[in-house]
């Protein structure tokens, strides 16, 4: 019976990181589950579900050798391997405007108050150095409807930003 781990990795972005990490995992006989791999501000980041029948300690040792050799930071933590049960987002929220402190804290505190469960959050700093534009996109499940959520976000201190909340309709066919 395999056990699952969450591998997290951060390092300066360059070609070949994924190939090198997954080669080590392959040679260790691991299974790979769900993953998110993304370049964030010049760093390459990996969150990867890794399943193994073997010894987590031995696997961690090989990964740390790789981390040292390639100047990466890698962690391996035991994690639940809950697959085949993706919750479907029903609401998406997009907030954008001139960058300032507190946007995410205000927005997500308000959403938590609405009973909103975040399934995916992505944000980026666009615009230019002189005029940074912050864009936040959140998808999740919420019992309230889109209009009610939008009103609450605007009332809860996001009046200076562009807030739009939409129902997400997934077509199954």
């Amino acid at each position: 019976m395999e056990s699952w781990y969450m591998l997290t990795l951060v390092g300066r972005d360059r070609p070949g990181i994924v190939a090198e990490v997954t080669q080590v995992l392959y040679e260790a006989g691991c299974l790979l589950g769900e993953a998110s791999m993304l370049r964030l501000g010049g760093n390459f980041t990996i969150m990867l579900m890794v399943g193994t029948d073997g010894d987590g300690t031995a696997l961690n040792r090989s990964l740390q050798q790789l981390a040292d050799a390639l100047d990466l930071r890698i962690h391996l933590d035991p994690a639940e391997g809950a697959f085949h049960e993706h919750p479907e987002a029903n609401i998406c929220v997009t907030i954008s405007g001139a960058d300032r402190a507190g946007i995410v804290a205000q927005a997500t505190r308000c959403l938590a108050g609405c009973g909103f469960n975040i399934l995916n959050l992505e944000s980026t700093v666009a615009g230019s150095v002189e005029r940074p534009l912050y864009v936040l996109h959140i998808e999740g499940q919420c019992p309230l409807d889109a209009e009610a959520i939008e009103q609450r976000l605007i009332q809860d201190g996001l009046r200076d930003l562009d807030v739009s909340v939409h129902p997400m309709e997934t077509m199954i066919a």
Binding site: H84, E85, H86, E88, M168, E169, T170, M171, I172, A173
Partner: peptide
Amino acid sequence: MGREGCLSVPDMT
């Protein structure tokens, strides 16, 4: 752009 799933590809959108 829109979100799709498929009866023939369960648990994925």
